[in-house]
């Protein structure tokens, strides 16, 4: 029915429901929170890697790490979060901070009754869900040969900050190129 030119789509809520259930299932199956979060991150990683690989087969390779990060902020983010990253900052030494003012999965999150009474609890619950996008970013970068660690910080829901620390830049990428970007520049123009 759908021609190959038309990208196949499913309702966004379908994925939301799957993720909600996944988080619940992992929490029930593993006694410690850190194990289940690690697994969630691992699932995100494998999805991010495969998705990024599939999307970038037809394009020219990225010139440097910044180029790859920009791709993640724009196209990759568009596909996964239906919007672009709101702000990208870097310290020119391999640390990138991606700020998204409204992360879909965190925005629709309804904290448990216990968490609702206490803002800190709501944030820590949101952090559990944020492990999935962390994995997605790490996976996408890994697909481009960039080894990085990604952590999330939730200060005010539904905004989320992802800190990407590049451990091993892409082969051929130079830190000089990354330094070309002005400090504090917004990485996602419309």
């Amino acid at each position: 029915m759908a021609s190959p030119a038309v990208q196949r789509e499913v309702a966004a809520t379908t994925l939301d429901f799957l993720l909600i259930e996944l988080v619940a299932q992992l929490a029930a199956a593993h006694s410690t929170a850190s194990t289940s979060q690690l697994k969630l991150e691992a699932i995100g990683f494998s999805v991010g890697q495969k998705l990024a690989e599939r999307q970038t087969t037809a394009r020219t390779p990225f010139a440097d790490t910044l180029d790859a990060i920009k791709y993640v902020c724009k196209e990759f983010w568009m596909d996964t979060f239906l919007k672009q990253v709101d702000n990208l900052r870097t310290n020119h030494r391999g640390v990138f901070v991606l700020t998204d003012n409204r992360v879909r999965w965190l925005a629709t999150l309804s904290p448990s009754a216990r968490a609702a009474r206490d803002g800190a609890h709501a944030r820590s619950e949101a952090l559990v869900f944020a492990h999935f996008p962390c994995g997605l970013i790490r996976g996408a970068l890994a697909a481009f040969g960039i080894e990085a660690s990604v952590s999330a910080e939730v200060s005010a829901l539904p905004a989320c900050q992802f800190t990407v620390k590049v451990v091993q830049p892409a082969a051929g990428a130079s830190t000089v190129a990354a330094a070309g970007v002005a400090h504090g520049r917004a990485g996602a123009p419309p």
Binding site: V10, A11, A12, L15, T80
Partner: peptide, 8 residues
């Protein structure tokens, strides 16, 4: 609202 089916 729709997402890329590949992601799902």
């Amino acid at each position: 609202e729709k997402v890329n089916a590949e992601l799902f």
